[in-house]
């Protein structure tokens, strides 16, 4: 075996250009697969990582109606003590700007403290966010999506009619957090305090709205077990329990299609890389067949003669893989941070 190692090393040392060419070929074959696969992994990881921000809570219960007293009691009996709860109601409605222009929006009426995770990115950056959040709940004020400025011809400081109440536009929401149950919305959103919702008189009998209870657990380790219990306890079609992972997956549904496609692409890349590597190995072994025969004629056993070149291939493969993974982890924009760690 010593001879096999020594001879393999000598061959590598004396045929540098071939070895470099071989290593580059092998590394390039694998890099395509890894790039696609790591992009997919990175995408999934990001969705997973952002899932709490997407939901704005550890878990949520969303219903097309208010929860019954029994259902509320069931939930309260199952969740751990010190679990924080926020209620949000959202629904679609027509709103009107000061010039009388109107259009469909999604009204989000929320409690103070929403969201538990993530935050609103507001246009008025000079304002302290905490203060701004509190201000939304102190008067009849509304935050709107930027596109509504032109659609409703309304600006910050002007009034917006929501139902039977006038709300003052105090800020523009550049990016909102939470409640991402679906990948797309039908209309831009406006945000008001839940305590002002009744004044709008938009939610009367027969109106459709989603009633959402958002929860922040004191200890997230109990979540999986709790989700199972809640799913069993509230098994009606118009009430759904969402963990942040589930919400993340729903919001990332389109990304999942992309992820599936990328899986296919990475499989094809792997297949091509395998064929390429196979040809490379085959070419190498064919090239060395003569040398193996010479070694046999000089008194080497078959094992040693073949091991010489297998070891050489292994060394080149290890170097190619090391180079690939090291450079890839350093330079790939898709390589997930947690994998680098």
């Amino acid at each position: 075996m010593n001879f096999a190692f020594r001879n393999a090393w000598r061959e590598i040392r004396n045929s540098r250009s071939f070895c470099i060419f071989y290593i580059i070929n092998l590394a390039l074959g694998l890099v395509g697969f890894l790039t696609v696969d790591s992009f997919k992994t990175s995408l999934e990881y990001k969705v997973e990582e952002e899932s709490k921000n997407l939901l704005g809570a550890d878990f949520a219960i969303r219903a097309r109606r208010q929860l019954t007293t029994e259902e509320t009691q069931t939930v309260q009996s199952l969740i751990p003590a010190q679990t924080k709860e926020i209620k949000v109601i959202d629904f679609y409605s027509m709103v009107a700007g000061p010039a009388g222009r109107s259009r469909l929006v999604k009204v989000v009426a929320m409690d103070p403290g929403f969201p538990f995770y993530g935050q609103f990115d507001l246009k008025q950056k000079e304002n302290d966010r905490q203060t701004s959040n509190e201000l939304l709940h102190q008067g009849k004020v509304v935050w709107i999506y930027p596109e509504l400025r032109t659609q409703l011809d309304v600006d910050i400081g002007e009034m917006l009619s929501i139902g039977e109440t006038q709300f003052k536009v105090t800020d523009l929401v550049m990016n909102d957090a939470g409640l991402q149950f679906q990948p797309a919305e039908l209309a831009p959103k406006v945000f008001i305090s839940r305590k002002n919702l009744a004044d709008t008189k938009l939610l009367l009998k027969g109106n459709t709205a989603f009633y959402i209870s958002l929860f922040k657990l004191p200890d997230s380790s109990v979540q999986d077990e709790l989700m199972e219990k809640l799913d069993k306890a509230i098994s009606v079609s118009d009430v759904r329990v969402y963990s942040h992972q589930k919400a993340g997956h729903r919001a990332g549904r389109l990304l999942n299609y992309l992820s599936d496609f990328l899986s296919l692409v990475s499989m094809v890349a792997l297949f091509l890389a395998t064929i390429g590597s196979g040809y490379l190995f085959h070419g190498f072994i064919v090239q060395k067949t003569g040398d193996i025969a010479v070694l046999l004629s000089l008194g080497a056993s078959k094992k040693i003669a073949i091991y010489t070149y297998v070891i050489q291939l292994m060394i080149l493969g290890i170097v190619a893989s090391y180079q690939l993974f090291w450079r890839f982890s350093c330079y790939s924009p898709f390589y997930p941070e947690h994998c680098k760690d």
């Binding site: 001879n7 000598r10 061959e11 004396n14 045929s15 003569g290 040398d291 025969a293 010479v294 046999l296 004629s297 000089l298 008194g299 080497a300 056993s301 078959k302 094992k303």
Partner: peptide, 29 residues
């Protein structure tokens, strides 16, 4: 086979028409 390899290395030397040298090794190697 292993004994034959050892035997060959000690008792038989072969010179080929095509030399059959290992092209990545020096003359000394």
């Amino acid at each position: 086979q292993n004994e034959l390899s050892r035997f060959r290395s000690k008792h038989i030397g072969i010179v080929f028409q095509q030399y059959h040298l290992m092209r990545h090794l020096t003359a000394l190697e």
